[in-house]
Amino acid sequence: MGIIQTSQVKSPWILHFCNSSCNGCDIEVLACLTPLYDVERFGLVNMGNPKHADVMVVTGPVNYRTARVLKNLYNQIPDPKMVIAVGACASTGGVFHNCYNIMGGVDKVIPVDVYVPGCAARPEAIIDGVVLALQKLSKAVGVAK
């Protein structure tokens, strides 16, 4: 247990990826970062670069074109990593379950650690999901929490 593992749990960096989402969950993920909810006080920073990230926040159902991009981004994030599926569509396909271009939830393509329910998921629920993921991450890197 070194300083890297400890800081990974103390200040996890987030990569947000939007599949074919309706935007509802995306703006709620962004709203988490703004003054009312302000997850930055927990050390969470939104990153554009997958190689900087520890936690991947995925919104929206997977379609036939984003599947490849999603897998690609996932593989670029260094281990250990956590994946949070935000919203009903990211978890199961949700309201789009019978659309022809939809493969289903994010777990059809990459392993998911935490599912956040809601359509659109509320910021409180998203923060809750992130905290759950951090508990899981601390177990994975061997930092007791």
Binding site: N19, S20, S21, N63, C99, I102
Partner: peptide, 24 residues
Amino acid sequence: YGHRGIEKACEINEYPKNIHLCER
């Protein structure tokens, strides 16, 4: 990257249910 096929799904669903689909 965001194509789902909502127009087709609106033909499959009954018309009152499409409101929720169109909102999304």
